[in-house]
């Protein structure tokens, strides 16, 4: 595409990687050349960089799509997901799943990102509900002090929780920050 077609959320292929435009500013000084000052985010690694294009440059669209899958199982070096409508299975390499993997639970619905037809990343729901597998015994009534303790959740993920939390509690976790949000009542 021509650089003048650039928009926020345009998906571009640069050096064999898919990037999304997250911030975008058009400036054109004087009788000068238009500049498209962008922040772009690598859709696989999440790295954000500044990039400026000049009027007249041509860019390559990235062939990316995102589809809903459910988590099935892990083999250690890869994660397997299934499309619950078609039963199609895809495998995502562990290094591509990155930190997100610590929230992967059976049947969790995620968005799998495909680049040139290959799965290259996953996007979690903003919040997940996870069970406490291990923690110190709960302390009743102490909800106001803000004191916390460590807890290990069902996937092995460790998080700071309030003192009243006990083993078997279900917790709402914000996947973007990794933080405890609240206890969920069944």
């Amino acid at each position: 595409m021509d650089v003048s077609d650039l928009k926020k959320n345009s998906k571009l292929e640069i050096d064999g990687q898919p990037w999304v435009v997250t911030d975008f500013q058009f400036v054109k000084p004087g009788k000068g050349q238009g500049l498209y000052k962008c922040k772009i985010k690598n859709m696989i690694t999440g790295a954000v960089i500044d990039r400026t294009w000049r009027s007249g440059e041509r860019l390559t669209d990235a062939d990316v799509e995102s589809r809903k899958f459910e988590f099935l199982f892990s083999t250690g070096d890869a994660y397997t997901f299934m499309d619950s409508a078609t039963y199609e299975q895809v495998e995502l390499q562990a290094d591509l799943a990155g930190d997100e993997a610590k929230f992967l639970m059976d049947n969790l619905s995620v968005d799998i990102l495909f680049y040139n037809g290959r799965p290259v990343g996953l996007t979690l729901p903003s919040h997940v509900t996870m069970e406490v597998a291990q923690c110190e015994p709960g302390v009743k009534g102490d909800t106001a002090t803000g004191a916390t303790k460590g807890a290990t959740l069902q996937t092995g993920y460790e998080v700071q929780v309030p003192l009243f939390i006990k083993i078997g509690d279900k917790l709402k976790i914000d996947t973007r920050t990794g933080a405890y949000v609240e206890r969920v009542n069944d």
Partner: peptide, 14 residues
């Protein structure tokens, strides 16, 4: 000159 002026304007002059 046009490119130099444009880039300099955006990144230094503004």
């Amino acid at each position: 000159w046009t490119e130099l002026f444009s880039l300099w304007s955006a990144h230094t002059f503004d």
